[in-house]
Design a protein around this nucleic acid. Structure first.
Length: 502
RNA sequence: GGCGCCAGGGUGUAACUGGUUAACACGCCGCCCUCUCAAGGCGGAGAGUUCGGGUUCGAUCCCCGAUGGCGCUACCA
């Protein structure tokens, strides 16, 4: 028997931003499809027209593409099972409902809301499962048709079979629900709008989905869906219910925990490869378990659904940051310069049009290299680099620790010696080699060494007694001072002069 | 209330079909490097696998129960 081609889908509703939980579901679907050589579809669940918005759909697709999760069928790509938007498939559902009704697998339910509520209350009081009594199940075909024809409002319910509903879950194993604990589910509301559990099942079947990979909040809905497959005589697919992602307080991760949308991660300057790697690790571990960093290709090769954990995982910013730092260091400087530009632009440090200048871009690359080792997210860059663009001697002196350094006897001598050298520097700017030579001279001249030697100079140049190494920093400052920027970047010489004038 | 899922260091995971001093990574702490902050290198602490039974020569792993967390229980998705 030749193996069936796997087909999976990611089916979000466009009611808001794509967040980590859903993104991880999408990723696992995508990885599974790619690993097995199958297909990954995107389907938009927009039956809830009040909450669905076109802009969310567009954002969703953009976010998926940013993560590198291209779909083989779906909006924008189309395919043999189009349309891929549920709002455009209403006719299909209606047709299928007719079939079920005709086959008496489903029936019209004329019960009112009040009646149903009373029924539930009674069941709760008697400690029984709150399932529908099935009162309208017994209605004859004639009576049912007659009341419908008379205009009496009705919903359509599925007849739950009288055998246990079981299915296989690749994460949880065999799962079984006793039939008496599952209520005859509503398929179509009295308004005529079909219900989520119903349309999902119809679509999954018609789109020939072989593996339904989704969040475990759907686990308890699955027996109903299995019953729908059975009612139509369709093959029940494999399921894989992914555990929830929790916040550090072990509560379901939500906006309450801060930024959790994919869009916000991108805005912060988290690289997509870092996020993909992190999300993959959240609920899955490679065989052997000694590797943590995986490219998307490596994940595709290693990812096995059977290895996904059933227990919920806590989202950890520290580890995401660690991975982001890792990928930031791997990234092409030109790419980082391009990405970082937006943040500096926002901070008013750079102009958009200057991106066209190779000189500017090169300078940006060297600037990023200076701060890269201490960067969690790219958007931290303008703040870390602020002292390059804006030098404030007064504030530097005001700092308590700085004042202590500057108060020492040698610091004055050191600064004077340094100032005289910078003052006489060639117009080309100070080079790191020159700087090093000067510091050696000053060391010999004043007897100051180590912190006593470097800290006063560092404060006079950067405003702080700690910061990046001078070798990398000096070229950035000197080159920057010659560029045409929104605000002039002070050269070493200008900094020292200004500092001593204060 | 009913039904279902889950349960290992602070966190994410590894541990072949039951046999390991319970491994790796993040984080934390320390040391080295260094003018400093990072980065990097080296090392350390931190769980005996929720609890109670059972099966077994032997359970993190299999079974039962309890407890806790979560989900579903809608004419929400």
């Amino acid at each position: 028997m030749k193996p069936q081609k796997t087909r999976v889908r990611f089916a979000p509703s466009p009611t808001g931003l794509l967040h980590v939980g859903n993104a991880r579901t999408a990723l696992y679907n995508w990885l599974f499809a790619r690993h097995t050589g199958g297909q990954f579809l995107l389907r938009i669940e927009d039956t809830d027209l009040d909450r669905s918005e076109a802009k969310h759909e567009a954002q969703l697709m953009e976010d998926l593409r940013w993560l590198g999760l291209e779909w083989d069928e779906g909006p924008g790509v189309e395919g043999p099972h189009a349309p891929y938007r549920q709002s455009e498939r209403l006719g299909i559902y209606r047709e299928h409902t007719e079939r079920l009704l005709a086959a008496r697998k489903a029936y019209r339910c004329f019960c009112s809301n009040e009646e149903l509520e009373a029924e539930r209350a009674r069941a709760a009081a008697e400690h029984r499962p709150q399932v529908y009594s099935g009162r309208c199940r017994a209605l004859s075909a004639e009576e049912s048709a007659e009341r419908a024809a008379l205009g009496e409002p009705f919903a359509v319910r599925l007849r739950i079979p009288d055998h246990p509903l079981r299915f296989h879950d690749m994460v949880r194993g065999e799962v079984e629900f006793a039939q008496e604990t599952v209520s005859d589910p509503i398929l179509v509301r009295s308004s005529g709008v079909p219900v989520y559990n119903y349309v999902v099942t119809v679509d999954d079947a018609l789109m020939e989905i072989t593996h339904v990979i989704r969040g475990d909040d759907h686990l308890s809905n699955t027996p109903k869906q299995v019953a729908i497959y059975e009612a139509f005589g369709w093959k029940v697919p494999e399921f894989a219910h992914l555990s929830t992602i929790l916040g550090s307080d072990r509560e379901r991760l939500s906006k309450r925990h801060g930024a959790t949308s994919i869009a916000s991660f991108r805005e912060m300057g988290i690289l997509p490869e870092a996020l993909v790697n992190y999300l993959a690790l959240l609920g899955w571990g490679a065989e052997g378990g000694t590797r943590e960093t995986f490219t998307q290709d490596e994940l595709t090769r290693e990812f096995k659904l059977e290895r996904v954990t059933a227990s919920p995982a806590v989202f950890d910013w520290a580890k995401l940051h660690w991975l982001n730092r890792h990928y930031l260091k791997q990234a092409e400087p030109a790419r980082l310069a391009e990405l970082a530009w937006a943040y500096f632009e926002q901070a008013g440090r750079l102009r958009r049009q200057d991106k066209a200048s190779a000189e500017m871009l090169a300078w940006m690359e060297s600037l990023i290299a200076v701060f890269l080792p201490s960067l969690d997210q790219l958007n931290q860059l303008p703040e870390k680099a602020a002292f390059i663009f804006q030098f404030d001697p007064e504030a530097a002196r005001a700092d308590e620790e700085n004042a202590m350094v500057l108060g020492s006897a040698t610091s004055e001598k050191v600064l004077a010696a340094f100032a005289s050298r910078v003052g006489g520097a060639a117009s080309g700017g100070v080079t790191p080699e020159q700087f090093k030579a000067w510091m050696n001279e000053i060391k010999a001249e004043t007897g100051a060494k180590g912190k006593d030697l470097f800290h006063p100079v560092r404060i006079a140049l950067t405003g702080a007694h700690s910061g990046p190494e001078f070798d990398k920093l000096i070229p950035v400052i000197e080159t920057g001072s010659k560029l045409d920027l929104p605000a002039h970047v002070l050269s070493l010489r200008e900094r020292v002069e200004m500092f001593l004038r204060e």
